[in-house]
Amino acid sequence: MSDRPLRHAAALVLALTCLTPCAAALGAQTAAEMSQRIHAMQDSLQATRARYDARRARATLPLNDSIVTDGVTVLFHAALAARDRAAVRQGIADARSLLDTRFGAGAAKLVEGTVWSIMSVAQFDGRAPTAGFVEGRVPRERSRVVGMPLRAEDVEDVVLQRAAHRLLDRAPVVAAFTAGTYDFNEQDRPLYIAQKMLALSASSVARRCAAGAIGACRTILDSHAADQWFAATDTVPPNGRAIPPGVKASVLGVALELGGTRVIDALARPQASDDAVAILADAAGVTPDSLLHSWTTQLQAAATETAAPPFPLAATAAFWCGIFLLAATRRRPQ
């Protein structure tokens, strides 16, 4: 049966939903009020879209099966092969294992208790063969899409991303500090990129931070000190930002390395301070300066490793050249 009438109805609902906040937004007295009302309008639109997706999914995607593995519930709305199910189990186990190994026993609680719905994306938009992962009991179109057949690495990636979001959801100040970006899967590379971004920054304060000046790091990481981010001689970029959010996310990474599960537990508690560095240092059980000292030390270590001369690469290339040359001499023309 065609779903055109359903689409038309949804469009009508969307249009009607738009009208009320639009009218309200136009009646705003200040720019801030206008912005607030437009955000409310966007939220309303997204909620309507989600309701529409969920209704359509319920109509077309019956629940095939479900499993509970390592404290995670997985609902299969697509008919998946046994190897896909095995990949799901393996991916969840790997994600738990990675968290426990890096941050100590108990870190896997960030994964536990989650509910995942897996569906075939082809059932939504004809793209194949891909699977959609979405957290919650109801399949929706707006999902994380991964290739089929499923691979444990992809499932692990999806689960770890959600674990990072769960960690940041508990600590709004830290979430705002990192702009919601953190990846459990990456360890050394964010530090290398952070050091490169600091060294390339238009702000001389950021460059001093990259050289290890703790005071400069405190300034550059403090959102209340925006007027001190750039020296008088610096050229301020059009966006006014001294460093990208990924640099700040690497501070969270270092705090987690220092404090492990202690940080995960501490971030779940309500925070009185609005200073993210102080919150992270407190959670890791160190002083803010000590946290920043560890951070800059690790940044510089990550940079040194990357700039190392590629001796193993040269040796490997020489080895393969030798093999190819030896092969070339084997055949003599008649």
């Binding site: 290339a317 393969w320 050249c321 190819f324 040359l325 092969a327 070339a328 001499t329 084997r330 055949r331």
Partner: peptide, 12 residues
């Protein structure tokens, strides 16, 4: 490396 691989391919 590319030269060696091409060379081996051509002479073999």
């Amino acid at each position: 490396v590319a030269y060696s691989a091409s060379f081996a391919l051509q002479y073999l």
